[in-house]
Design a protein around this nucleic acid. Structure first.
Lengths: 167, 167
DNA sequence: TATTGTTATACTCTATAACTATA
DNA sequence: TATAGTTATAGAGTATAACAATA
């Protein structure tokens, strides 16, 4: 009767996609109330969050970073634009739909960040801030590893080569 | 007032739910072809995988372990039962819907495991088997931490006492 | 001709409430 | 009275193909 934790994981817990899903479900449950209270969906929130760190981003980049398929992103653009949280930015490549946060969108983002900050600190304290950093590093590196496995020619998450209209 | 004081800790790449989602997307992309080729959805696969390690499980336990809401699980039971992959097991508590794999279900599970084994080995080799173990440990421990934070009275993943107010 | 994004469509999952039946 | 599960329903995400506009 091998008791799981701290010893050997059960086989079920060794499944990477399932472990990632379950852990995401748990952490999402922790932070989702702050998203809900502002009438945002999680995909909408991911878009706002991605835009909060960039001047402006095009749909393709957002789709990749936020794990949202283009058709869904089109709808999300519509909803966030109608609420005045994002706005389109002209681009030298007229095919690209580039958007950025409006001041209202930035303010909303900051509200959510500040409201969720105590929960984040509590989690970091309970789990260990340095372990959290280790986990995040491993997650991002594993993603790079998988992407490189599937497309060895591409540098992961650095789509900066021959991007038209970029200064 | 937008005060970006939390700099590195709150960057997009450091968002836990988003990092978990993106890494899951990558690993799922790696393994999903083996699921697809057997006409299974990912939730269906999670159910089969959970059942492969247990004599039989009830709906509530499966819902928790596989991160599937009860209404979805009802449909999944129907589909897997119609395909002869699972079957109901009588339980002393007649309210409980307990199921187990049929021999066909177990055979299908083994097929998928064997077919996906090379990809798993390739990933473990590229990323490092011991780092993969570390990542899985951290994921499961983080999930425990969050669950304990949200319901300190509960032992995580042992839902055998009355769980009230679970949302 | 290739790329970007939108539209169209079908399906699945998410989420909640209401209901049945068992305990 | 509480719990387990199903049904019903609305909404959102998933996924693909087809299309338009642009490069």
């Amino acid at each position: 009767m091998p008791t799981p934790r701290n010893k050997a994981l059960r086989k079920f817990e060794k499944s990477l996609p399932i472990a990632l899903l379950r852990t995401r479900e748990a952490t999402t449950r922790l932070f989702k109330p702050f998203i809900d209270s502002h009438d945002l969906t999680m995909p909408q929130w991911r878009v706002l969050r991605a835009l909060a760190e960039a001047e402006a981003l095009d749909a393709k980049t957002l789709a990749e970073r936020c794990v949202i398929l283009p058709p869904s992103l089109t709808r999300i653009f519509r909803g966030l634009t109608q609420r005045g949280l994002i706005e389109q930015v002209q681009c030298t490549d007229a095919r690209r739909h580039m958007v950025r946060l409006t001041p209202e969108g930035m303010a909303l983002f900051e509200d959510v960040v500040q409201e969720s900050e105590p929960s984040y600190r509590q989690l970091a304290a309970a789990f260990g801030a340095e372990r959290l950093d280790t986990l995040l590093d491993l997650l991002n590196e594993l993603r790079d590893t998988v992407q490189t496995m599937q497309d060895p020619a591409e540098e992961p998450d650095v789509p900066l080569r021959k991007v038209a209209g970029l200064r």
